[in-house]
């Protein structure tokens, strides 16, 4: 699996306020990138922009040396995104939730749902309605997709939230495994992350200067 992702001079605005600008960064196959920055620095906005959920104000994002807005359908096939919200329905069972999430991507899975449930330690809950689960367990339901997806670019917003220690270790192992196979992981986390070869992208370095603020405002 060969992958390349680059941010080409991008800047993002929110409500006509510049969050960061002139951000350039390049990720090669096997990169594990943590986006860091203070609250409101634009971490989530950057991840959403990276997924194509919103447009950058300027600049472009290149996936496999091609602008992601040129062929969004192709890009989506190699993307797995999990936001800080948990897209899990309380009135569906664990299995049903995993099924509908997986159905959004037709790529054949290399593990069965049962295997994924074992990995996230939820096999005993397969037929339990999700509103009976704890926050961490619901999070695990969503994270089980990491064992079913064949996407090469994983974009994870706060993946470690409400996951216990053993779960975090398991998740870290999974991320490491993915990058060793040549995938790319971009994540944000407020918890300290212990991952090998973790690169860090500090958004505070791309803050607009005061003059730019004034010029823009």
């Amino acid at each position: 699996m060969l992958a390349s992702l680059s941010f080409n001079n991008i800047s993002c605005e929110r409500d006509e306020r510049i969050l960061f600008n002139n951000l350039s960064y390049e990720c090669k196959s096997g990169t594990l990138l943590q986006v860091v920055g203070f609250n409101g620095a634009g971490k989530t906005t950057l991840l959403h922009t990276l997924c194509g959920l919103r447009q950058p104000a300027t600049g472009q994002i290149l996936w496999q040396a091609q602008d992601i807005s040129l062929n969004p359908q192709l890009f989506k096939q190699s993307l797995f995104f999990l936001g800080h919200q948990t897209p899990v329905k309380g009135h569906l069972t664990v299995t049903e939730n995993i099924q509908w999430l997986r159905s959004l991507h037709p790529a054949p899975s290399y593990t069965s749902i049962q295997q994924a449930l074992i990995e996230v330690d939820l096999l005993a809950y397969a037929d339990t309605h999700c509103h009976q689960l704890s926050a961490g367990q619901r999070r695990r339901v969503a994270l089980s997709q990491l064992y079913l997806t064949q996407a090469s670019l994983w974009v994870l917003d706060e993946p470690f939230t409400s996951i216990d220690k053993a779960g975090v270790a398991k998740l870290a192992q999974r991320l490491q495994q993915h990058t060793e196979r040549g995938g790319i992981v971009v994540l944000t986390s407020h918890q300290p992350v212990e991952l090998e070869h973790l690169q860090s992208l500090d958004l505070s370095r791309y803050q607009p200067s005061l003059e730019e603020h004034i010029a823009h405002g």
Partner: peptide
Amino acid sequence: GSLAQFQLSS
């Protein structure tokens, strides 16, 4: 967040 998943679906 299901809507974001729909939008990013293939």
